[in-house]
Design a binder for these strands. Structure first.
Lengths: 202, 202
DNA sequence: GTCTATATTTGGATAGAC
DNA sequence: GTCTATCCAAATATAGAC
């Protein structure tokens, strides 16, 4: 194998994936074809099979890439000792991440791609992202799993409604602070400060 | 035209639509074909075009039907003078409606069907449903549009997370009461009772 | 109103030359 | 590794007989 052969492979795979994201944004997550991908990168369709064994494998790689970006976005949220500030920043970052790329949101969080199941390999970044969220929440004293679940429902709901019903506007985006504050109020009421919560009702 | 000709047409259309819902639940919203529909109702594919001009027209009819069911579900929520009880019931009814038919949820609220745009005719029931929600909220003193938007984000988020991440369980379903209570707390804090709210921040 | 037959297009994927 | 050529299957939709 020539020097840099693996790098060339990786670069080609990357070029293909970037073309796929662009095509997906233009034609929908399931609205682009192997021939279109090939045309976008300047080869013929069969050549793609040198780099990906199937179209499913391409979706799988996109899923991994999207989740890695999500994990990075979670890690990039500035950490604050103030719970309200921290959650406002987290909510804003999450909604921004989702709205920035609706197709990515659909692939990562809505799972509406018919028949698609990510491989364990591609699911790993998603686990890392969730762990990062868990750690950030623990940092401001939120440790109950059901609280985290309620949070993810709240912020994915904001993003989903924004994208589905006001894709060009900010009708739900501008509710992120209010949503975070509402959530904080629940915590303050349930937890009575910052003590470790017990088994009381959510 | 023979007596009952229109009834026969309507009955045939209805039979086709019921087959479509069943196929969609089995194979996904975009995972069934005209031939499969035809086989399910006992005719050949071309015969379907007597009742629907295209597959898009079928989706359009499904969209209208789903929204009519949603409107009816909203109207069926028992009315309570107690705000908290009312919202708990509304949240539970909404999530139940969504989880009962994931494909319907996807068609009505997620809008991920590539290229699908409902006709004005089919959109009408959706407007009626939203108006019913607005009226129910007004009944317990909630009149601000942004409050209604936050509510829809909250409950669609619960349904979406439930379907995407725990389709066989109840991990988010069991958070509906807590979500409703959290929302009520926001109202009680923002509105200071039941007086007509002004322009204060959400 | 339903059928057979088929037009037309398109999809993912493979064979084998170079 | 890339290509041409093609397989094979399937899709929506239409034409025209009955």
């Amino acid at each position: 194998m020539a020097l840099g052969g693996e790098d060339r492979q990786a670069a080609a795979r990357d070029k293909i994936l970037r073309a796929c994201w662009e095509l997906a944004r233009e034609h929908g997550l399931s609205g682009f074809t192997m021939r279109q991908i090939a045309a976008a990168v300047g080869v013929r369709a069969p050549s793609l099979y040198t780099y990906f064994t199937s179209k499913h494998a391409i979706y799988d790689a996109m899923f991994a890439e999207g989740n890695a970006a999500f994990r990075d976005a979670v890690l990039a949220v500035p950490s604050s000792a103030n719970r309200r500030e921290q959650l406002r920043a987290a909510a804003a970052a999450f909604v921004r991440f989702c709205v920035a790329d609706p197709v990515r949101f659909q692939l990562l969080f809505q799972r509406t791609l018919p028949g698609f199941q990510p491989s364990p390999r591609s699911y790993a970044p998603a686990v890392e992202a969730l762990e990062a969220m868990r750690a950030a929440f623990a940092h401001v004293g939120i440790t109950r799993p059901d609280h985290l679940d309620l949070w993810t429902a709240l912020v994915t709901g904001l993003a989903s409604q924004q994208l589905a019903n006001d894709p060009a506007g900010d009708r739900w985006i501008r509710l992120t602070d209010a949503a975070a504050d509402m959530f904080v109020a629940l915590l303050d009421q349930a937890g009575a400060g910052r003590t470790e919560p017990g088994a009381e009702d959510l």
